[in-house]
Amino acid sequence: MAEVRVTVDGVNYADDVEPRTLLVQYLRERLGKTGTLVGCDTSNCGACTVHLNGQSVKSCSVLAVQADGGEVTTIEGLARDGKLHPMQEAFNECHGLQCGYCTPGMIMAAIDLLGDNPDPDEQEVREGIEGNLCRCTGYQNIVRAVQSAAQKMRPGAAAEQAPAPVAGGGN
């Protein structure tokens, strides 16, 4: 067993885990953070994407012990006081999801992308989310959603945008 101390969606945790425990397993099975999903075993699909210390990572390819001392944000930690993150709103408004299975990872990847590049063109969005597979949407409305969120999140764009992007994308 190894000890892991980690902050997830604003709550501090200290747990003993088997070293082989994947971060995503820890989140889902130990912390009940079932909003983060697993879609593959080779880090291709990106469904498990969360932010670790402000950067998007595939939580199936990080050991829980590697996150020791770190800060994790999952899809469940985005909305603040019942107010959705602009990216979440944009996915709804632009019909950027169907079955929803890729959605948590896609949203987390997209937020990170905007942290790096606040005003991406279509091709930059497509390349920015290339680590996340979706089988339902053909991506077009996801791309639209990310660009729409970028508009909303632009400084001074809208008065009502309460939550700042959670991740800075981390440079």
Partner: peptide, 8 residues
């Protein structure tokens, strides 16, 4: 790879 992989 992709942005997430490049982070790690």
């Amino acid at each position: 790879a992709d942005p997430q992989v490049r982070h790690r």
